[in-house]
Design a protein around this nucleic acid. Structure first.
Lengths: 349, 349
DNA sequence: TTGTATGCGTTATCAG
DNA sequence: CTGATAACGCATACAA
């Protein structure tokens, strides 16, 4: 026995009407007699009729489904974003298909292929750290697929985008370290091709400059896998330790990198903020319980997911092409957790 | 310009064939001449033909979509499960629609309603902490919808289930606390109606009994919202503090409850394990970095998602009704994190 | 081996 | 106001 749904046909047969009449009763308000309409609606209600969305999709050539490409579901930042995406999508009657790039360009490409083959109505994309080539994305965009980029955007493709104010977030994080007395602040960041990496780097550099601290390339380490491979963070830090100018603080510019840093510091028995200052972008939920608690830059992930989805649905549902492609910028939040001031002042000269 | 896909018709027209011939070339190997087949396949490849999954769904009366009901996406335990679900589903060509109950029975019911109306082929369910009434679930199960329960199962409904060995996990966690010297071990658990809560409670009680410690109802506190509402944990702990028999340790039986406990202890300035022993079920990723690190019971969430999905697809794809409804039990992992032994020995009499 | 016709569930169009 | 018919894209029973 298969799960069988009630169809319009069943109603028509039961009521001795034609399918078109039933359909009209269920949709229209005019062009149908009140009695018939009432009859149909009551019966439909009674047997719990649900229109078959697949048949509707075929007819309307709309799947009411949007595709999402993220790095990893099991990552606080992304799962919060997905939460936001789902909340808006569901409210508007859309389904969401999620796929993960795991920061690999190949996986991202095959996901793209998979999603477009599933006849989705639109696409939410945060590109992988490996993605240098945007031909695939560009092609499906040119073929008319609505796309909204979030977080890791692609400048070359003209469409709506949602990002956080990475520059200011990084600026304030760095500024905070400086105000705490650190002067040799290293920066651990994602693959330099990523938009977020560039913007955060710029914020970091500007903060240094504004406080009269010399920029120093040896203090900047790129993790091209975004910290997916734990080892790369350790190698980056090892290189930093070996610098002539040894860092006294680290600004880590993603969740994975921040947690990775914490792990390595622990492993090497380096305590922050006494031996080493630390601040990072993080949306995880235990940073405040560390001892000492870690100050972080928190991103409005849920809101980003919501906003990106709203923009995508606008693209999907608008009858006319949208010309003014907005880039919406959300504020980050610098969460300063103290109990550390005393130790830090020792470091101050 | 809308995103238009190539159809079998386009190929037929371009090649001067009928749609059925093209369809056969794309599916069958027999009943078609090798030349025609080659011609069609090459052309299809060239113009990047992708069969329309919606049309297929309508024809086969199969959506190739499974529904999932979890508590919250943005929860490490569930996001890891979803990761496992997605990995298997995608490999087998299925989509996944996720919906969240937020531990509310009403939301769960409306999600159930929504999912079944989306013509899904099967359902993966972890019931909410509020779900006392299984009529809805039972009804759609009886109507032939394949269902697999995971984690929070429903005994009354006969179908495949995947759980972890909650009893042993709780037993070992409690035993560990006992071995550390604690004798007044409180238990913070989910709504008592949940299968996982019952099993974990049983493990806890048996461990106490096996070590000659008297069972004591005042040491057991239920959080009926599963810790979704931070306040309920605080209230539970406050009641515990007021006990005549004051607890010297807590066994928290979920991720949320464990983290909630950590927060309250911190807030009250009670340090573990010196002032209060603590162990909990947790799949979060910073518990090892706390100072001191927290020992936890870790659940194989990813594997649970994979296994549940495999079982569901088996139900969906089997032609004959499956009679032996398995309940697969996965092992939990007790992760003991030391650096705490010294302090604890002080507590030992 | 290939083409024609039909149906999956629904709605839009046309005829009555 | 209502009923018959075609169409969305595909696969298949049947006819050729």
């Amino acid at each position: 026995m298969k799960f069988e749904a009630v169809t319009i046909k069943d109603i028509a047969k039961a009521l001795g009407l034609s399918t078109s009449t039933v359909s009209r009763a269920l949709r229209d308000s005019y062009e149908i007699s009140p009695e018939t309409k009432k009859l149909v609606l009551e019966y439909a209600e009674k047997i719990n009729y649900q229109p078959n969305p697949i048949a509707l999709s075929l007819k309307e050539r709309k799947s009411h489904t949007i595709g999402v490409i993220v790095g990893e579901i099991a990552n606080n930042f992304f799962s919060q974003i997905i939460n936001g995406i789902e909340s808006v999508a569901k409210e508007k009657g859309y389904n969401v298909i999620i796929s993960q790039s795991h920061e690999s360009f190949d996986k991202e490409s095959s996901n793209l292929q998979y999603l477009t083959s599933r006849s989705i109505d639109g696409l939410l994309v945060s590109v992988s750290a490996e993605t240098l080539n945007f031909d695939n994305l560009n092609e499906i965009h040119k073929r008319g697929m609505p796309i909204v980029f979030f977080d890791r955007i692609v400048d070359e493709i003209k469409t709506h985008k949602v990002i956080v104010d990475n520059f200011t977030g990084a600026y304030n994080a760095t500024k905070h370290l400086i105000e705490m007395g650190y002067r040799n602040i290293a920066h651990l960041c994602n693959a330099s091709i990523l938009s977020i990496a560039k913007e955060r780097l710029a914020g970091y550099l500007t903060a240094l400059k504004d406080h009269g601290i010399m920029e120093d390339d040896t203090m900047i380490k790129y993790c091209k896998h975004g910290g997916m491979i734990a080892q790369e963070i350790e190698e980056a830090l090892n290189e930093l330790w070996k610098n002539k100018r040894r860092p006294d603080a680290i600004f880590a510019s993603s969740d994975k990198l921040t947690i990775g840093c914490l792990r390595i510091l622990k492993k090497k028995n380096i305590s922050f903020p006494k031996d080493m200052g630390l601040i990072g972008f993080s949306n995880g939920d235990l940073t405040d319980l560390l001892d000492p608690p870690l100050s972080v830059v928190r991103q409005p992930a849920f809101e980003m997911g919501q906003l990106a989805t709203q923009m995508l649905l606008q693209l999907i549902e608008s009858k006319y092409p949208i010309t003014n492609h907005e880039t919406r910028v959300l504020s980050t939040e610098l969460i300063i957790r103290n109990s550390t001031t005393i130790q830090v002042e020792k470091i101050l000269k």
